[in-house]
Simulated assay, not measured.
Amino acid sequence: MVPLSLLTEMRGAAMSLTAAASGLVVFLLSVSAVQGQDGWGVTYSSTEICAVNGSTVEISCSYTYPSTPDGRVNTFEKTCWFSQKKGGERVDPSTFSEYAGRVEDLCENNICTLRIRNLRKSDSAVYWLGIKTSQTAYSGFPGVTLSVTDLQVEGRRSGSSTRLQCLSSCHTSYIWFKNGQKVKEDTSPYAYFSYSPADSYSCALKGYEDFPSPSVYAPKLPSVSVSPSAEIEEGSSVTLTCSSDANPAANYTWYKKNEDSPKASGQIFNITDFRAEHSGSYSCGAQNKLGRSNSNLHLSVGTGSSTMTVNIIRTTLGVLLMLIPVFLLSLWTKKKKALRSTTEAHEPEEIELDSIPEYENDSHTAAQTEDTEEQEDLV
């Protein structure tokens, strides 16, 4: 234990260096007590922790301190966690901006836990607990070394099997997943599986099964597109594009049927000044270390006369489409006129009584008069 007189002297020197620092930080920077000496002590549940990027980790410990060092009453004031980055910077995670919203400091009954969520690789550091009492401050060195790692799977197809390796800076047990289902646990980072182009694989660290590596798998059936079209005018340019879902990313190679040498490599294959000899079947091969997959397409060149015929047909169809509405309108107009004429021809003629000549009425009356006179004569 550091003598109180020396402690007081060191405390004053440290406070003169940075008046803005809190008392506990100043003490921890200037005083370093030996763990477990004279009743002081911090016991960590683990001195080395390896965790996966994105996961949550808890650094736990218990602590003790003397109640009457040097015959003086020593009362507890507070605890605080500290971390030291690789560059040597010492920070308080509860106030440091890089940890904002991700840190919880839980202390009760001489047991403290530092919980860090959504871990980042930059969180890799040494963490320790500091204790401040009414008499002095104590640093719980050497602390806990936290390593945050990314997980990756590296694989290679070997004949009828697939050889995989889980890449991690941690040395622990590994969990293997096939098509999302747990299939194996081993302390070795290597695993072997029967080859199948439809299968995907991932690994996780034991205790962090919810944070597996990205899956690796052979290329899926490539998708091939051609621009401007599969029927190409002679002398024009054509672009072929190939893409496939694969992890690791696929490499692409173009072949033409009945030709041994590849025509091109890469996702895009350009053919300028397309000629008849370019016509034929083409194949796009997508390949990574886990397998290969192919897709085919056929290209053909059109002649000048056929192109002209197509253009004439297109023009004719366009004109017909414009004339059809005019023709239908004219036909409808004629039909309407004919219907009107037929209707007028069948309507009955109205005869006005006033138009009947008067003499017809007089003759009828005269005949009636003569008959009357003849009857009178007979009488």
Rank of each mutant, 00 (worst) to 15 (best):
L4D: 01
L4Y: 01
E9C: 11
G12N: 09
M15S: 08
M15C: 08
L29E: 06
S30F: 04
S32H: 09
G41V: 14
G41W: 07
V42A: 06
S45A: 14
S45T: 15
E48R: 12
A51S: 13
T56W: 08
S60G: 11
S60M: 10
C61N: 05
Y65H: 08
P69H: 06
K78G: 03
S83R: 07
D92N: 13
S94D: 07
E98M: 13
E98G: 14
V103I: 14
E108P: 01
L119H: 01
K121H: 04
S122D: 08
D123E: 11
D123I: 11
A125V: 04
A125G: 06
L129M: 09
L129V: 08
T133Y: 03
S134V: 12
Y138T: 08
S139E: 06
D150Q: 00
L151P: 01
Q152H: 05
Q152D: 03
Q152N: 11
S158R: 11
S158Q: 11
S160I: 14
T162S: 02
R163A: 04
L167P: 00
L167H: 03
S169W: 03
C170M: 11
T172N: 06
Y174I: 15
I175G: 01
F177M: 11
G180H: 09
K182F: 05
V183L: 08
K184F: 11
E185F: 08
S188I: 14
P189G: 08
A191Q: 03
A191E: 01
S194D: 07
S200H: 09
C203R: 00
C203E: 00
L205A: 05
E209T: 14
Y217E: 01
A218Y: 00
S225H: 06
A230T: 10
E231H: 10
S236C: 10
S236A: 14
V238R: 00
C242V: 05
S244L: 15
N251L: 14
T253C: 09
N258S: 14
S261M: 09
P262C: 10
G266C: 10
G266P: 03
D273V: 12
D273A: 15
F274Q: 00
N288L: 08
G291M: 08
R292T: 07
S293G: 07
S293T: 02
L297F: 13
L297H: 06
S300I: 13
S300K: 14
V301E: 01
T309C: 12
T316F: 10
M322T: 12
P325K: 12
V326Y: 04
V326I: 15
F327I: 15
S330G: 11
L331R: 09
W332L: 12
K337S: 07
K337G: 05
L339Y: 00
R340D: 04
E344H: 07
H346E: 12
E352W: 09
D362S: 13
A367V: 15
E370M: 15
E376M: 12
E376S: 10
